[in-house]
Simulated assay, not measured.
Amino acid sequence: MVEVFKTNVEDPAQAAKLVGLLQKHITNSSVNFDLEDCDKVLRIEGPEVSPQSVVGILKDYGYKCQPLE
């Protein structure tokens, strides 16, 4: 399963911190940001990815996140 999200994360250091955090919550997953994309894309690939959980985790850290279609 692959989920792609539009975010407002711009800082590479913060993106790296969020990748680690998301990988702890979503086990057996591959998580990365494309901060060069205009949508600051977050891509998560794993067996079980809950878009609502991802949105909630980023919101808890003060970031906006919404699934891309």
Rank of each mutant, 00 (worst) to 15 (best):
M1I: 13
V2T: 15
V2G: 02
V2I: 15
V2L: 15
V2K: 15
E3P: 03
E3M: 13
V4P: 09
F5I: 01
F5H: 04
K6S: 10
K6M: 06
K6A: 13
K6Q: 11
K6C: 04
K6L: 04
T7C: 13
T7P: 05
T7N: 11
N8Q: 04
N8I: 02
N8V: 05
N8G: 02
V9C: 07
V9G: 08
V9D: 08
E10S: 08
E10K: 11
E10R: 12
E10A: 02
D11Q: 03
D11W: 00
D11I: 03
P12M: 06
P12T: 06
P12E: 13
P12Y: 07
P12A: 10
A13S: 14
Q14T: 09
Q14N: 02
Q14M: 08
A15R: 07
A15Q: 05
A16R: 12
K17W: 00
L18V: 04
V19A: 01
G20P: 00
L21W: 09
L21P: 00
L21K: 08
L22E: 08
L22K: 10
L22A: 09
L22Q: 12
L22H: 08
L22P: 07
Q23W: 00
Q23F: 00
Q23N: 02
K24I: 07
K24S: 05
H25N: 09
H25T: 09
H25Q: 11
H25K: 08
I26E: 01
T27C: 03
T27Q: 12
T27F: 09
T27A: 12
N28Y: 15
N28P: 00
N28M: 10
N28K: 13
N28A: 09
N28G: 01
S29E: 08
S30I: 05
V31K: 09
V31P: 06
V31L: 07
V31D: 06
V31T: 14
N32V: 04
N32L: 09
F33Y: 11
F33C: 14
F33N: 11
E36W: 09
E36D: 14
D37T: 04
D37S: 13
D39I: 11
D39V: 11
K40C: 15
L42S: 09
L42A: 03
L42Q: 09
L42R: 09
L42G: 04
R43D: 07
R43N: 11
R43T: 15
I44S: 05
I44W: 15
I44K: 02
I44F: 13
E45M: 08
E45G: 06
G46D: 07
G46I: 11
G46A: 08
G46F: 00
P47C: 10
E48C: 02
V49W: 04
V49Y: 07
V49F: 15
V49T: 01
S50G: 06
P51L: 03
Q52D: 11
S53W: 00
S53I: 05
S53G: 14
V54L: 04
V54Y: 01
V55W: 00
V55M: 12
V55T: 12
V55A: 02
I57G: 01
I57S: 01
L58R: 03
K59F: 00
D60T: 06
D60F: 01
Y61I: 02
Y61L: 05
G62W: 14
G62Q: 13
Y63E: 14
Y63A: 10
K64A: 04
K64R: 05
K64Q: 06
C65D: 04
C65N: 08
C65I: 10
Q66N: 10
P67N: 03
P67A: 10
L68W: 10
E69N: 11
